[in-house]
Design a protein around this nucleic acid. Structure first.
Lengths: 154, 154
DNA sequence: CGAATAAAAGATAATAATATCTTTTTATAT
DNA sequence: ATATAAAAAGATATTATTATCTTTTATTCG
């Protein structure tokens, strides 16, 4: 009866889970292994049924590959590995969050800005650039290089 | 029967509403006027009952002053005007969101970082700095200077 | 083929965020 | 003092997000 409501990020938990999941799968794909849901769920410490839904989306959006049946599971091919992390956001939350106004103004832009427009644009762009410039293969490589684990506690 | 579920920001709608509300009140306080809920709700285009709750919090946390009764309402005193916008975040969402990990790692730090730690830290810090360096009086001044309106559509 | 494995899909449940409604308290003015 | 105005407080409703459970479909292997 454990609770999974722990983290509190500016973006959704779904996206955080998806980032961890894709990274985990990518690391194992480089070793030529497929990953199944049970293993993944334990490896990144995310509840299996919910993770299943997220994985479905990621496959549907072409971020990951999957196969059913014995020996099946999820993996990244060459195409996936080259995708920017931005595509993970796109497949989960959508990218609208990166074009929004901090103060909730509908038409906030540089010619009619809210009082925090310039500052927040800078913040958003920093994240946007990071998600565009970081490929899935980079995520995997960083995990390998630093021996970081993807479970929340590690 | 209108819907208010429109904006989609990285932080909460509550925070977006609070920013608009405090700014609106500050502008009017500079003209020596108190603002009541009804006027405020129309001025910034936020549903009155929900806004009422947010205002309660802001007053309780010392960001705004209020008075009941005829001629009552909300206002900012000299103390309020000097507060950084960060205090508005603190009074609504709390600031934990500015110390979180994008990938949901519990202990994410520079010595054991997630693969996006450095990049996301930059993003968070940009926002953090903006919220610390912008005072409530600055928000009001920008609205006055640029003749911006605080309703979503404007 | 039939049994077993694993993802996909569909349906339901719990929690948090957002929104509304009603009653109470406090202040003002007559 | 009484009526009125306005915030505070409390209770309830709606919607979105997160989480779970069950059934179906695809694949492999004996």
């Amino acid at each position: 009866m454990r609770s999974f409501l722990i983290c509190m990020t500016m973006l959704s938990k779904t996206f955080a889970y998806a980032l961890r999941a894709v990274t985990y799968v990518a690391v194992h794909s480089k070793e030529g292994k497929k990953v199944n849901l049970e293993q993944l769920s334990e490896g990144i410490d995310v509840p299996q049924p919910f993770l299943g839904k997220i994985m479905q989306d990621l496959v549907r959006q072409g971020v990951l590959k999957s196969m059913k049946g014995p020996g099946g599971g999820f993996w990244t091919d060459e195409f996936s590995l080259k995708l920017p992390a931005f595509e993970i956001l796109n497949a989960t939350d959508g990218y609208a969050v990166l074009t929004s106004c901090l103060m909730g103004k509908k038409n906030c832009n540089s010619s009619l800005p809210c009082p925090l427009h310039a500052e927040y644009a800078l913040c958003r762009d920093t994240l946007f650039d990071a998600l565009r410039n970081t490929r899935i293969s980079d995520l995997a490589q960083k995990v390998e290089a630093k021996e970081i684990f993807l479970a929340e506690d590690n």
